[in-house]
């Protein structure tokens, strides 16, 4: 199809060369023209702000006060590291990330094993399970509020509690974080599943056939063939999910708003509060933002290194 198109064009060559002589653009110029709008936008929207907030993190400044930033050196960082309240938020976040990522990994992998071999409805089921992932987290959080409602919510009802007697998921300090975890796992297990399915479908059949000939048990096949073969993709999924879980903001805002008390106050939520509500502590918030940024970069790097080692080994 393409070839004929090209040949057609060559018939009209005189017209084209006239066109060409007027608008002559060298490859180098075209390359610059194609690249620079993108890079300029990214530099002005992403890089410049990062330097700006690095500067702000060393100052005392409030965006709503009419005073210029005052340089205070490392004071903000010192305050944050000595703030026992903030450590609670970091601990909440750590617990949340650990729980949600490990549950997603187990459930996602399990779902992938179930849907691995095709059956008549498997395509439809796979697509349907992917729906939650596409939804807006804040809307999902808000809606689960109704589902978790202790008197007329469907969650406790399906668990078999009589109306009004079940646990109050969103009002209890112990359960609220679990509620956020449940919703997050519901939303994102399909993501892990999708990646695992890709990994599973790439395992060559002869590995299993050889194991079958050797009369290897299915458990042995799972440990020695399935798991190692899926591991690289599983790790990519875990990497993505860890980074994303660390950034969780929308879901919590929709579901609990950080409450009750500070039971579900994650670092990202607190960062928002610090920067845009109450005192508008812009300087301190910038410092906290930088700490979060460093943690995210560190986590990404650990995983990427691990991933590369697996690929090589």
């Amino acid at each position: 199809m393409i070839r004929t198109k090209v040949r057609d064009a060559s018939d009209k060559q005189p017209a084209i060369s006239r066109y060409r002589s007027r608008h002559v653009l060298s490859d180098a110029a075209l390359k610059r023209l194609f690249l620079w709008p993108t890079l300029a936008l990214l530099i002005s929207i992403n890089i410049f702000p990062l330097f700006y907030s690095l500067y702000l993190s060393f100052t005392t400044y409030s965006a709503i006060a009419n005073q210029p930033p005052v340089w205070v050196g490392l004071q903000n960082y010192r305050d944050i590291l000595n703030d026992s309240q903030l450590w609670i938020y970091f601990r909440n976040t750590g617990r949340f990330v650990l729980l949600t990522v490990s549950l997603q990994t187990i459930i996602g992998f399990g779902l992938a094993l179930l849907l691995r071999e095709k059956f008549r409805a498997s395509g439809v089921i796979t697509t349907l399970i992917l729906i939650p992932m596409m939804l807006s987290p804040v809307v999902v959080g808000l809606f689960w509020k109704l589902i978790f409602d202790p008197s007329y919510g469907i969650f406790n009802y399906l668990l078999g509690y009589p109306a009004g007697r079940g646990p109050e998921w969103l009002a209890s300090k112990e359960l609220a974080l679990w509620a956020v975890v449940i919703v997050d796992v519901w939303m994102w297990s399909p993501f892990v599943m999708l990646l695992c399915l890709a990994g599973l479908s790439a395992i060559p059949d002869y590995l299993y056939e050889a194991a079958e000939i050797d009369r290897a048990s299915s458990l042995y096949q799972f440990w020695r063939i399935t798991l190692p073969q899926v591991a690289p993709l599983l790790l990519i999924a875990v990497l993505f999910r860890t980074i994303e879980a660390f950034k969780t903001f929308d879901l919590v805002m929709g579901l609990t708003g950080g409450g009750p008390g500070d039971a579900t106050e994650l670092v990202a939520v607190n960062l928002y509060r610090l920067a845009f509500l109450g005192q508008w502590n812009t300087g301190k918030a910038s410092a906290l933002a930088y700490i979060v940024l460093v943690i995210i970069i560190a986590v990404s790097n650990i995983y990427i290194k691990y991933l590369n080692r697996i690929k090589e080994g």
Binding site: T38, L42, N46, F48, F249, A268, L271, A275, F276, A289
Partner: peptide, 25 residues
């Protein structure tokens, strides 16, 4: 360059918003 472009997506929105808010204002 490609890595730089990808890394911009890893930034948590809340982290970038503070300076962007000031810039936009």
């Amino acid at each position: 360059w490609l890595f730089f472009i990808l890394s911009t997506r890893m930034l948590p929105p809340v982290v970038v918003t503070i300076p962007i808010f000031l810039m936009y204002r």
